[in-house]
Simulated scan of single mutants.
Amino acid sequence: MSNSNLNPRCLNIGGKDIRVVDDHQYVLLIWGSLFQNRKQPMALVSIDYHPDTNPPFWLWAYQKAMAIDPDREAELVEKFQQRMLAALDPLHLDSVQMVMDQMRNDEHINTAMELGYLRDYHMINCMEKHVYSRGSHYLVPENQFGSLEDVVFKNIELPLEKIGAEDLILDIDLDYFLRPENFELDLDQNNIFTDLVKQAQIITVARSKTYFDFLKNDEFTIESCEEKLIALLEKIISK
């Protein structure tokens, strides 16, 4: 387990908290801490290459079920998932931290929904436009992967009026960005991402280095990507 998962990089820019972890599932602990302080669930806007909305502890439960009885897979998966969730106390993060090793990096959003940390989510991604009973998915067109320009948010029909009325967490995975030019955002022409940054009560960032290195199109390091994002956030917040 990376030390920065449990001790994330912490920045405060213009009074806005930004937290950076290595593995995306560990933002769950940050969201849980925010819930403890605010005593109410938040809405989430997540920008990611992948739709990180698999059910809580799904892979762990699936592997356990298949090892016991493949013919009872569905029944056992649900049983093991519910057993794991029942052991968690949303107000005591130690109980959540203890099971993080059983959580994949695409299971934290719906776990946060189950724990009451989130009341809704808007998942902007490049892979799947899932339709679930809760939350919404928005699929970025391939020719706009990595972009933060207004045209992206308009093309995916992000419900800005609804989001503008919500208490918001903004969550960003660095693997969304494919090249350094993605951060060359004209802030006089592109206001939607700016508004999301300014509205957010907190911004969480996942490095996801393995996925970043696989997806990037240029000679682009994870360190450079992180610093370019932080610089863009600072520019927006101070604007």
Rank of each mutant, 00 (worst) to 15 (best):
A87I: 01
E75I: 13
M127L: 13
G116A: 07
G135S: 06
K239M: 14
L158K: 10
N182Q: 03
A74Y: 12
M103R: 02
P159W: 14
E219G: 03
I169Q: 01
E226Q: 15
F145G: 01
K16Y: 03
D17A: 10
L168T: 00
V131K: 12
L115H: 02
R19D: 02
V20L: 11
I156G: 05
H122G: 02
R72S: 15
Y211P: 00
H130R: 13
M113V: 13
F193W: 12
K64R: 15
V45A: 09
N191P: 02
Q102F: 05
Y117M: 10
V77L: 05
M66R: 13
N54L: 06
M123G: 03
I169A: 05
E73C: 11
N12E: 15
D106S: 11
R134D: 08
Y62R: 13
L28F: 10
M98N: 08
F220H: 06
L196R: 09
L91S: 09
Q36D: 12
N143F: 09
Q82V: 03
D120M: 04
E73D: 12
L187Y: 06
S238K: 12
A165G: 04
S224D: 15
A67M: 08
H137G: 04
P159V: 10
N37Y: 03
N125K: 09
V20R: 07
L91Y: 14
A112C: 08
H24N: 12
M1C: 07
K129S: 10
W31G: 03
L185F: 06
D218A: 13
D52I: 10
A86M: 09
F183H: 02
L178G: 01
A65Y: 02
N37V: 03
E219T: 12
V99K: 10
F35Q: 00
I68C: 02
E128A: 12
S133T: 09
A200K: 01
A65D: 07
D71C: 03
A43M: 11
Q199Y: 09
E73F: 05
N7E: 07
D23M: 02
V151L: 13
K198Q: 13
L187S: 09
M42C: 12
F57Y: 14
H50A: 07
S224L: 09
F35H: 01
L28S: 15
L91I: 04
T221Q: 11
L34N: 02
A87V: 03
P56Y: 05
I237Q: 05
D106C: 10
I163L: 13
K64Y: 05
D171R: 03
V20W: 10
A165S: 14
L148Q: 04
S238W: 03
C126F: 01
